[in-house]
Amino acid sequence: MVAGGAPNGGGASAEALSAKVVVQNLTIRYGNHVALRGLDLSIRRNEILGVIGPAGSGKTSFLRALNRMDEFIPGMEVEGRITFDGRDIRRVRNVYALRSRIGVVFPLPVGLPLTVYENVALAPRLRGVRKGSELDEIVERCLRRAALWEEVKDRLDSLGSLLSGGQQQRLTIARALSQEPDLLLLDEFSIAVDPVTTMRIEDVLKDLKNEMSIVLVTNLVQQARRLADRTAFFLTGEHVETSDTARIFSGIVKDPRTHDYIEGRFG
């Protein structure tokens, strides 16, 4: 089952075999507060999975669990099973290798206190790329793909934090791409980005889908509609439904709350 394949449903086991990531019965707690309850969901290969829902619905917690970033958050407890290419991510022996295959773009651009060049070269360096020419090539390729190269090619040695907000966000996307990830997680990437830049990044994402799976957490229902192959709706920790984006937005929903949300009736 590949991108844009059969609509929701189908054999769960067949889906489990072909999916990039399979999430089973995922529950996330912060102390007594349950952020996400019993989530079952899969991320297919070469799809953009949109995740929508109002604030506090568990979207970000879900992303954090996917690359085991929960380990650095005191009090965050994760139960359930997540497999990545069939491997239980709780049982991988090298969590850093897992994370290196998952790119993350945070809501606000986090320009590391490094130059533009070093921001993008960091991940390749971490995995052992030493040769200057090779690094140059990776940096240029990633910056081009993030639609940033033309704007920064003359100031690769200035600090990343000196770029404008939209440029910084594209820099973090370039940095995520430099990991050569199989899975790209975007957490409300367009919060601090102007509409024109947002559109440019969205075009980039449509392209990237050919090489990786993308999870797009967004507050903008229309963004999910534009980009996502399938859309998942979360509400206060509950996974209401996941379905083909086209179906959801044409009103074919299993749960009336989904319809209410995308119509802007609450949230």
């Binding site: 897992l98 994370r99 945070f106 986090v110 971490l126």
Partner: peptide, 17 residues
């Protein structure tokens, strides 16, 4: 800022890295 640490960890950096 913790954001720096998270961003670097997300890249697959070990704690020492």
């Amino acid at each position: 800022p913790d954001g720096y640490r998270e961003a670097a960890e997300a890249l697959g950096a070990t704690r020492w890295q």
